[in-house]
């Protein structure tokens, strides 16, 4: 990392830590929380969809699994939610490994893989809707008891700091992937599976493992969401909207890059707030997202990050 990049990163970190102190209202802090949360989930998607090129349309399945795992442990079994949290990551990771192993062993790639993940998410939604232990379509309510020991905070600034820690951890994972052997293997698989195999990479194992990591991250995100809103139901936990959001922030920001999901989440967060301020028409935000995505895919295949990288390249630097 260059000295300049290090300085930028330090400044960004300080600004992020100070942000809740300067934001004018709890509403603004909550928007910031959701932007960070979206960046975190986007990074989870990015590990599989960006770094390894395994585009999933159903990543919400890991988020939902995690949300249900910790919420059931907490609300039904009386676990402390902080203790239930790692279980959510484990559950999400296990489902990631499972779906990865099944889909990749069957040789599914590209759009076939995307459709199968979408189908898995739907199956999980239907199961959650009909099963007893998920309380079906009623969903599960977490009893409000705003104590930090209970992973509930009266002041949203604390959720902000938890979300910030999640984002920092996810950036560290992505950074490690850029530098490590495992990350190089995933990049090779994304670019050309046959060549990767010829060079000694166990493609099946690497892809499955990557789905496990990605699933564990999204699963951990599920707990955060449940503790923030104190309620989950099958549509929240396994609905297609979250899958799309994860994919959108990552692709708009720059799939396969370390900071892409964060940049994408911030951009989409502002767009979302702007459309909400300008009009009350339901769903207009989605229309705008769609237009932005089309524009990005057509004009900026490397996402918004690609813009910065291109400018850096013109200045003579290398490797953003």
């Amino acid at each position: 990392m260059s000295a300049r990049a290090r300085l930028l990163l330090a400044l960004g970190a300080v600004a992020a830590l100070a942000l809740p102190l300067v934001l004018p209202s709890n509403y603004a802090v909550n928007v910031a929380v959701m932007i960070l949360f979206s960046a975190f989930l986007g990074q989870a998607w990015n590990i599989a969809g960006g770094f390894a090129g395994q585009t999933s349309f159903g990543h919400v399945v890991f988020f939902g699994t995690g949300a249900y795992a910790s919420t059931i442990l907490h609300a039904t079994w009386g676990w402390n939610p902080w203790l239930a949290w790692p279980m959510a990551a484990l559950a999400g990771g296990a489902v990631g490994l499972g779906i990865g192993a099944l889909a990749f062993r069957a040789g599914l790639r590209g759009s076939y893989f995307a459709l199968v993940t979408l189908a898995f998410a739907e199956v999980f939604r239907i199961l959650a809707n009909s099963a007893e232990f998920t309380r079906g379509g009623l969903g599960i309510l977490i009893k409000a008891d705003a104590r930090a020991a209970n992973f509930q905070f009266r002041d949203p600034a604390w959720f902000y700091y938890v979300a910030l820690a999640l984002v920092a951890a996810s950036l560290a994972i992505a950074w490690w992937l850029r530098r490590s052997r495992f990350g190089a293997q995933l990049a090779a698989i994304r670019e050309n599976e046959d060549a990767a195999r010829a060079l000694g990479i166990d493609v099946l194992r690497a892809k499955t493992l990557c789905m496990g990591i990605s699933g564990a991250m999204a699963g951990a995100g599920g707990t955060f969401y449940a503790q923030k809103y104190l309620y989950i139901d099958p549509t929240i936990a396994f609905g297609v909207e979250k899958s799309v959001e994860m994919l959108l922030v990552s692709m708009i920001g720059g799939a396969g890059t370390v900071f892409g999901p964060l940049v994408g989440a911030v951009a989409l967060g502002f767009v979302g707030e702007a459309t909400r301020a300008l009009t009350s028409a339901q769903g207009l935000g989605l229309v705008v997202y769609g237009i932005i995505l089309v524009a990005i895919v057509a004009r900026l295949p490397d996402g918004l990050i690609g813009l910065f990288a291109r400018r850096a390249a013109r200045r003579g630097g290398r490797d953003a």
Binding site: A187, A188, E191, N192, D194, A195, R197, A198, L199, G200, I201, D202, V203
Partner: peptide, 23 residues
Amino acid sequence: EPHVVARAGMVRTFQITQPFARL
């Protein structure tokens, strides 16, 4: 499997080149 063969020390190249194009 090819990766097992490659790890054992026998590695092939491709007639139609298969670069990792964006790397």
